[in-house]
Design a binder for these strands. Structure first.
Ligand SMILES: [Mn+2]
Ligand SMILES: [Mn+2]
Ligand SMILES: [Zn+2]
Ligand SMILES: [Zn+2]
Lengths: 153, 153
DNA sequence: TTTGTAAATAGGAGTAGCTACTATATAGTA
DNA sequence: TACTATATAGTAGCTACTCCTATTTACAAA
């Protein structure tokens, strides 16, 4: 029995692909077979792949594709809203010596991490289904965006 | 005027250092001058430094210290609860092709990212002070822990 | 249909941020 | 003071990008 990693029917995948192509054109991007293959590879899984993982997957239908193309394309997809980067991932590990309850905002441009504290966010309740299935070690409300310093430029 | 990156008085820093030393002993860790210097460098800033940033800082008072020691020590501090790793940071960039509102749980061991959806988490309200100061591009409730697959081992 | 061109890709080199390895040094102890 | 498990310095190796350049291609214009 083979592991099933797809998440939708071919009909739905094709429909999404059509809308993706329209989105590319709306954003002035060329519709290349590589781009389509990467989009289809990403949208048809819930594994939150890295570029490397997706590269392996797409190579099966597009053997010559380069890792750089996969990386660049995934960032392009994120820019036009056809994909997104999972929160926090992709940067150097950052440490915190403050043990008080607090939350973080991270600037996607300069990578600055700013503390804030909103008491309501200390008390978020993890759904029972999740708490039963996983051992929760940390729960956080996490914001990303452009910081004040980067904005005034 | 020099940029001030310290966050507390020397008295408070010394008090925290004493408690840190006690915590090391309680965990059977040797109290080395490197460890103390790294702890003090981390706890006395709110910049959420990377190992590299902290290495530069600690070198000023401890010129010979190696980057590897800083890295290892920071992970050790996290293990005994004297520090923490900022949520999500430190791993390869991960992508998501699912545009429906949902939340993520990440296993700190196998790095698996699992979707879940709790409607209440879609509606979290960013404090006005933060929303005014920064341009918020994404807000998320983010969980970390040990997943079901890793736990049964 | 053919042609021109800006955009995209392949392949490879370069870089950042760890991570593993090994010889040396040292904190804690007996 | 001597012992030894632990920690560190220095370095090599590795992963995940990121940059560079020559070549190709999508698509618009003729
Ligand atoms: Mn913080
Ligand atoms: Mn997801
Ligand atoms: Zn910024
Ligand atoms: Zn796991």
């Amino acid at each position: 029995m083979k592991k099933n990693t797809t998440t939708m029917s071919n009909i739905e995948l094709d429909r999404k692909t059509e809308r993706f192509i329209a989105r590319c054109r709306a954003n002035g991007l060329k519709v290349t077979p590589q781009r389509i293959a990467i989009y289809r590879g990403l949208v048809d899984t819930d594994e939150h792949p890295s570029a490397e993982m997706l590269h392996e997957k797409v190579k099966k239908v597009f053997p010559g594709i380069s890792l750089d193309t996969v990386n660049r394309t995934l960032l392009t997809l994120s820019e036009i809203g056809a994909a997104s980067v999972v929160e926090g991932s992709g940067d150097a590990r950052r440490f915190d010596g403050d043990s008080e309850k607090h939350q973080h905002f991270k600037c996607v441009q300069c990578k600055r991490i700013v503390d804030f504290h909103h008491k309501a966010f200390d008390r978020i309740k993890v759904p029972v289904g999740i708490a039963r299935r996983f051992t929760i070690l940390s729960k956080s409300v996490y914001l990303e965006g452009i910081c004040d310093l980067c904005r005034r430029r």
